[in-house]
């Protein structure tokens, strides 16, 4: 039988993990050293500004796009259920809208002569007619929130010609401004974020102020001209100062005045937004003219 069995040559033993690692191997696998080297690299990234900004921008684009893609199935599901709820109340909404439409038609009849009168008066007073703002519409990708910052991501970026600090609005009022702009995505800083500051004025008392977000759902008015003149329920609109927001956009109403602290209830419910409009920025000539006008004033 031994004649038929093939002779098998014993090969070298298979390599296994070294039970006695050298000092270098120990050092290489040391957690502390790895930790320290990552920290050193992180510090270098942090303090060499151009490199840091490049990394920050790249990371923002990657994370925002990935987050949008990961969230899309959940968002689609959310929209699906929203549509079902909406379709259930369709008949009721239709009746309401019809009634509202009738009222608006009547109001329009009254407004048409007024509009004409306004144009004639503007011409006779030689009021400068600035270029009207064009706008771009973008879809809201997602609204990440961790209790500190209020913002959301939109599916538009430099590719669509967006720039930092552009005004973001919806038909009901101002939403915020663009904080970071990537190639395909951008981050919108909402009005109630602690870092948000926009120049506003009250409609009736004409008091200029800054609307400062504080993280709550009711931002406050700071640097107010005369607090005593402002009344509760007064409308707050953008003042047009600063050159980001055009004048007269609705922001909210004065909700409460306590010990000089004026809280504003915003018109826009941020959590329900699906689409937003981005106003095109002012041209350089306009801004120059505007600044000169302000200086003269």
């Amino acid at each position: 039988m031994a004649f038929f069995s093939r002779h098998q040559k014993i090969g070298p033993p298979k390599p296994t993990a070294n039970p006695y690692p050298s000092r270098f191997q120990k050092w290489r696998s040391s957690l502390g050293i790895t930790f320290f080297s990552i920290l050193v690299m992180g510090a270098a990234l942090r303090f060499y500004k151009p490199f840091y900004h490049g990394i920050q921008q790249g990371l923002f684009e990657t994370t925002a796009t990935t987050q949008g893609v990961l969230n899309s199935p959940f968002q689609a599901l959310h929209h699906f259920f929203n549509d079902i709820v909406l379709s259930l109340s369709l008949r009721q909404d239709y009746a309401l809208l019809q009634a509202e439409n009738e009222v608006l038609k009547e109001q329009l009849q009254v407004l048409k002569p007024l509009q004409h009168e306004n144009e004639v008066l503007k011409k006779s007073l030689k009021v400068t007619a600035f270029e009207r703002h064009g706008h771009l519409t973008a879809r809201v990708l997602s609204n990440p929130y961790d209790g500190m910052h209020h913002f959301f991501l939109i599916a538009a970026g430099k590719k669509e010609g967006l720039e930092k600090d552009q005004a973001v609005i919806v038909p009901t009022g101002v939403v915020g401004r663009l904080e970071t702009v990537g190639t395909y995505v951008a981050r919108v800083l909402l009005l109630n974020d602690a870092r948000s500051r926009i120049p506003v004025m009250t409609e009736n008392s004409a008091q200029k102020a800054i609307l400062a977000g504080d993280g709550s759902h009711m931002p406050t008015l700071v640097y107010v001209g005369d607090v005593r003149k402002i009344r509760r329920g007064e409308k707050v609109v953008t003042s047009g100062l600063g050159g980001i927001f055009p004048a007269g956009l609705s922001v909210g109403v004065v909700d409460d005045i306590t010990n000089g602290k004026i809280s504003v209830r915003l018109y826009v419910a941020f959590h329900t937004l699906e689409w937003v409009h981005l106003l095109k920025p002012y041209t350089a000539e306009f801004l120059e003219e505007f600044t000169t006008g302000l200086e003269n004033e």
Partner: peptide, 20 residues
């Protein structure tokens, strides 16, 4: 950090500290 708009590195530092 980049998603939430914070300075890069804080969360990394804390996670690495956790691992350490």
């Amino acid at each position: 950090d980049s998603l939430m708009g914070y300075t890069l590195g804080l969360s990394s530092f804390l996670l690495l500290l956790s691992a350490f």
